[in-house]
Design a protein around this nucleic acid. Structure first.
Lengths: 116, 116
DNA sequence: CAGTATCCTCACAGATACTG
DNA sequence: CAGTATCTGTGAGGATACTG
């Protein structure tokens, strides 16, 4: 069940392509961001936290992140069901890189002076 | 002529969203990568370097990167025309962040042990 | 050489409804 | 509570042809 690689052109067989592939798409970073801020979160907690994501999108992105070793999924066999998500060590190691990007983005924003 | 922001959900008004917006899409990083390796490049040089990008895509992405202050476009008024592209200072400052991501990607690749 | 102008496709995303 | 199952649509990306 391989994901599509939107970034598999050129500069490819580059690990950068691989990285972007893992965190690409519309919802992966919002999920990673939320988990990095809040630690462990349940499904509906994530859903509430991430603005207006649908069940389908959330489920899909959680599965992909889990398969890629970026988040942990811990399911408690209770009723009602409880499932908790958190970043793996690998996932946590992503944060500094994201911060570097964010820092650059911050400078660019100032530089370009865009309203929002 | 504002670009669409694919990443403008949640974790938004975050500079990370802004950064990803600037370098998002399929072709921006290949162009940035090529320029960071080769310094100044002409249009067709980029086209040859970046695998199978079409004129349309290359032109479009060059315009956007130029408008966002990531690359310089220098046009020489000669015949035949000559146009040279290079990274701006802002563009160059992006490279370390990309390297951080690439480094993470490299680890993930090992960790996930994917064939390619 | 360095681009534009059209037209088109299809994957990603979403709405809605249902379930163990 | 934590998901699945369908169906639908939209726009980023692309093929092709033409131009100053």
């Amino acid at each position: 069940m391989e994901e599509k690689n939107t970034y598999n052109n050129n500069y490819d067989n580059s690990p950068l392509a691989y990285a972007l592939n893992l965190i690409g798409g519309k919802w992966k970073l919002p999920v990673i961001w939320a988990l990095s801020k809040n630690g462990t979160m349940r499904y509906n907690e994530l859903k509430r936290n991430i603005n207006v994501i649908t069940n389908m999108m959330l489920t899909q992105v959680l599965r992909e992140l889990e398969n890629d070793g970026i988040i942990n999924r811990k399911q408690y066999m209770e009723i009602p069901p409880r499932v908790e998500y958190s970043l793996t060590e690998n996932g946590k190691e992503l944060i500094p890189a994201l911060k570097a990007l964010a820092h650059w983005g911050s400078n660019m924003k100032k530089f370009n002076g865009e309203g929002m």
